[in-house]
Design a protein around this nucleic acid. Structure first.
Lengths: 260, 260
DNA sequence: GGCAGCCGTTCAATATACTGAACGGCGTTC
DNA sequence: GAACGCCGTTCAGTATATTGAACGGCTGCC
């Protein structure tokens, strides 16, 4: 679903080349610093074309070349844009107080994610006991089928839709990850009946997560609690799930419709 | 320093138009959603030209049009880029454990900022006691002359450099903000002697901040502690400043030079 | 009902950016 | 020390994006 180089459009629509490439560059550099020539090879763009582009981006502060290094990296101006997205997002804003409460109440890591194609993108995080790290995970992606957040969101769609969304065989992140449609479909059926999703070491070994969707409209977002298995007992799990379902109910009571 | 429309370069270098405009669009939309026609007016770009651009950005997931709304807003793909910058930044990585400790030890809000022109950009934050809000402040800018972070960084440069950096009269955010060179210069002289900067309600009423630079290389970054004045006593202030100076010393012991 | 304002969209002519090859600099290798 | 690999940079010709005017849809206002 999320192709890295979707340069060709079918509708007879031709993307603006330089704009398209600008995004290519930014996305490529999001993976780490890179020289002009290396970018040229990786993106299949002539060096001379990149030259102008990179200079443009650099003069605007979106890229920078640190000291004597010839490698380009993202610049300060780029930071603003992402935070602006998160700041202005209605669902993130609506969920914020609930995430706060949930994190404070459980003392566990709480996250909010959104379905984008077959990936889940992390948009907010509370990491209550330990002092909070960087934004780090925010903006990062994981395959939906391998996470509690993702499975909660997939379960909100019918099987046909889900199946069309995914590409098989599914990527296996741990030994527990669903890789075939049959096992995933069975899991999703359980999620629908049960009302919440469980990721039992399917994304990260030793980590179990629970997730519910955020009610309202398209059901694009979900909230999860992640707990190391060693810290988890049966009673503790019941407790956490109850807190999560409470949070979902609370989210359901807040205004559903786009206000502006 | 930070001009919104620096479309003309003097070096005989002409920026790539579409790339330049792509950034214009992204930066404009960072301020909030906007229709095509409105963008056209604000950026002085023909609607027809914007049309292609916006379609390109939308196809790539960098922009989105929510539901029936004709307004464009930032899309999910944009988020990744900013977080990648912060993640890959050496100084942020180096400072992270120190910020953690400082926040845990003082129980106050700790921030890291970088000088960009005459602004300070917030790159990291710890908000220990209260559950952590959005990334919110990260990526946001404030005038350097009005913040403790900014004054610490300005004080690390000589008067001549500072004066060339700023444009007078300086923007006044509160009644306490320095607006003239004389008073700012006097303050910076004190900062240099004292070793740390104080912002006494100069950016926000009722908030006092203390800041020290992060040693190493260009001195681009600083760390601050922010405290509501009502919670501040003389002894508490001494305590906080001591903790801040400790943190600075610790930062000075970590490797200064770019490792790669 | 019709007019005026907004919106996004299309199209052919023109202005412009892209290209590939050649260049100069620098460090390594033989 | 010469030949190579890497790097970023320049330039004239061609491929391509940009432009302004015109279009169709929509809403609200007389």
């Amino acid at each position: 679903m999320a192709s890295e180089s979707a340069h060709v459009e079918l509708d007879g629509f031709r993307p603006v080349k330089s704009a398209d490439r600008t995004l290519d560059v930014l996305e490529a550099l999001a993976g780490g610093p890179c020289t002009l020539s290396e970018l040229s090879r990786r993106l299949n763009v002539p060096k001379s074309s990149l030259h102008g582009l990179l200079r443009t981006l650099t003069t605007r502060g979106w890229l920078q070349t640190a000291g004597g290094d010839t490698r380009f990296r993202l610049g300060l101006r780029a930071v603003r844009v992402a935070t602006a997205f998160v700041d202005s997002d209605e669902v993130v804003a609506r969920a914020a107080p609930v995430l706060d409460r949930l994190a404070g109440q459980t003392g566990e890591t709480v996250q909010q994610g959104r379905l984008d194609g077959d990936d889940v993108i992390y948009l907010a995080k509370r990491d209550s006991p330990h002092p909070v790290r960087l934004i780090s995970t925010i903006g990062s992606r994981l395959p939906a089928h391998a996470t509690a957040l993702g499975k909660a969101l997939l379960a909100a769609r019918d099987d046909e839709t889900v199946r069309a969304l995914l590409r098989f065989p599914l990527a296996g992140l741990t030994a527990q990850t669903h890789t075939e449609w049959a096992s995933l479909a069975a899991d999703l059926a359980v999620v629908r009946r049960r009302g919440y999703a469980i990721d039992d070491c399917e994304a990260t070994d030793g980590l179990r997560c629970f997730a519910v969707t955020i009610p309202g409209g398209e059901t694009t977002d979900a909230v999860s609690i992640s707990v190391p298995t060693f810290r988890l007992s049966e009673s503790r799990e019941t407790e956490l799930v109850a807190a999560l379902l409470d949070a979902q109910a609370e989210l359901g009571r807040s205004p559903l419709h786009r206000t502006r």
